[in-house]
Design a protein around this nucleic acid. Structure first.
Lengths: 131, 131, 131, 131
DNA sequence: GTGGTCTAGACCACT
DNA sequence: GTGGTCTAGACCACA
């Protein structure tokens, strides 16, 4: 499966599903138009209540990541221009600041941190290229 | 005040307090040995339930960021060697990956993203230098 | 074609068909006595499940908009006096109230809203005139 | 209560709740900052499952109509500038067209229809004025 | 077959 | 006390 769910985690299961799908799409593991497992199917595979899966799918649809065709199933949507661009850019900046704080307590110096970031970014784009 | 709390936010108020203090310490706004307001003082200033403040202080103490001297108050602790280094490094990497996903949906290209990161990092260290 | 169907929409496909035909008739695009495509024809054209088309035709027949002549096909019916006049007037009023609520959140003022309504109404009747 | 719910209706209960609250706010029956009944309270009053109420409240929060303060309850939010303005304007236009179609089958003439619209609009604004 | 909705009942974190 | 989440099981409309 293109994600894993930890029922012990403090983050809600449906959130883990949402993030998992978003990441899989971003990584190119799930491609536009590809069919997602049906709510019941997925529920059976990961032994999670169907309602929980459904909630995740609805959230993903609201975010425009997937779309459901009535009676046929849910599919990865074509990438639409995103809404709330500013909001999301703020979110990225705020995540970066949290990283800075954590790095401070880890006593990472500027150089090490930047190197880590560069490596992560380059890896990401290199892995996507092949898709 | 060296932080602000948004009761409308979906993140718990006590978490906002914890993060706020950690950030203030990391930024050098709160220095080692500096006294924090008492639970009651702070509760009065920001109109938050004292229990919530107390919970945040407990969490901060558990993380070794602050320490309570009985009868004297709570103070910013000296920076101790961190525990769970690996765990925290993982946390940073995981936050970076989340950033990658968000950046993907924002369609930031590699160059732009790296530039944003560098700017953030450099700003951070430059601002700390002066402290 | 005198209508379009969006499989991604949250409104049922058969409902979209029903509404589409009703609108086409009201606009004069489909005239009394005009033959509609057969279920199979239409299904082939718009790649929709024939059962769905059939359901829409049944609904339209029930509403008296079209009629089926056995072996000959389905045709736009002559306009009969409507049933449930009161019910439908209520429906219009209720739709108008929904518009008011939406307009409120859009902060449309009275004048703008009335102007929009007048324009819509006049356009509608002007376009019908030519038919 | 400032709304009523019909469990026999074909429109989902949670949708009726959402629309009811939106209308009450638009009409000024619910004012900014006013507290809504708690999920459990309301569930008891209208004998509807708490989950259903919660779903409605969440939808309303997503739309920015209400906001929840953790552990304290849910309140009518201050009116923020709306998002998706274009989308909503389209929605209004589309509702107006549906009205035109219905009016056609009711054989309302232009004058009658416009009069009805004007009356509705004026009534609405007159009733709000007093608030 | 699909997803959408609802109920009943439970547990949890937060204030 | 509040809302948030999850499970279990059920019914429905739609394609």
């Amino acid at each position: 499966m293109w994600f894993d769910v930890d029922p012990r985690s403090s983050v809600a299961i449906y959130r883990q599903l949402v993030d998992g799908v978003k990441e899989a799409v971003a990584r190119g593991i799930l491609e536009t138009g590809e069919k997602l497992p049906s709510v019941r199917e997925l529920a059976a595979q990961v032994t999670i209540n169907p309602n929980t899966i459904a909630k995740a799918y609805q959230e993903l649809e609201r975010e425009g990541i997937i779309e459901t065709l009535r009676g046929r199933g849910t599919f990865v949507a074509a990438h639409k221009p995103q809404k709330n661009l500013e909001e999301k850019e703020k979110a990225i900046k705020s995540m970066l600041e949290k990283i800075m704080v954590e790095a401070y307590y880890l006593q990472l110096d500027e150089k090490t941190l930047l190197a880590l970031m560069e490596k992560t970014v380059q890896n990401w784009y290199r892995n996507r290229e092949g898709v």
